[in-house]
Amino acid sequence: MQGRHTGALRALWIVAILAFLYIPIISVLLASMANTRYMRFPHKVWTLDAYREAIASFTTWQIHSISFWIAFFVVIFAVILGTLGAVAFARFDWRGRSLFQRLLVLPIFFPQPVLGLALLLSLNAVGLSPSWKTAILAHLVWIVPIVTLIISIRFFGYDPTQEEAARDLGANNWQVIREVTLPALWPGIFSGGLFAFLLSWSNLPLSIYTSGPDTPLPVWLFTRTATNYSPLVPSVAVIGTLISACLVISFALIVLAIRGLQRRRA
């Protein structure tokens, strides 16, 4: 008896959680198939016109391309800086390390709009005009600490004696890094890169201040929702989500393929 009750409760709980998480997402999908500015559900007319309009529009292509290039460079720089940072953060013990650790995570706790404003003011101060390039810089200030933390986690439980063992067995410095340190860090670098991409792709508060005339996807969605809403907005949102999902999946597949090749070679 008790078993059946707990089973039913558990099912209810799971459904409630899933509904809570996914109904908002489904509503975007539904809203994108309307032909009116005002959402009255169910729609009188179901249509894919908004998608046709979105795909035909140059703006759709442009905002995605801006978001993609920002995210692309953020991933590259965040992974490089995050890996080096993690090495300093977790691998070696040096004077001032704990201060460095605290200063490093501080930007994460800053409200992003405040950080965005601060960045815009500093860009003005040094005479840089905001564009998609300065948005990369802004994203990095917030994302590098997160990526550093993610990669650092790999160092806890990592036995640095492995590097000495590799050297003792004939590996030179570069071989030690390639054969021991990087493979051990690899899962962290992978998830760090993934987080960097998704956090950059979806970032609104930093981009809004620092991207200037270049409009990335989230900024476009926000401004069009606020001032000139039409079903075009949810349809672009759906397209943007699909594109980021495709990018993430293909990234994962490429990584898996590389690993498979390496294993076959070994």
Binding site: D159, T161, Q162, E164, A165, A166, E179, V180, P183, A184
Partner: peptide, 8 residues
């Protein structure tokens, strides 16, 4: 090595 330092 004491910890053996195997490549995990």
């Amino acid at each position: 090595f004491q910890s053996l330092a195997l490549f995990d």
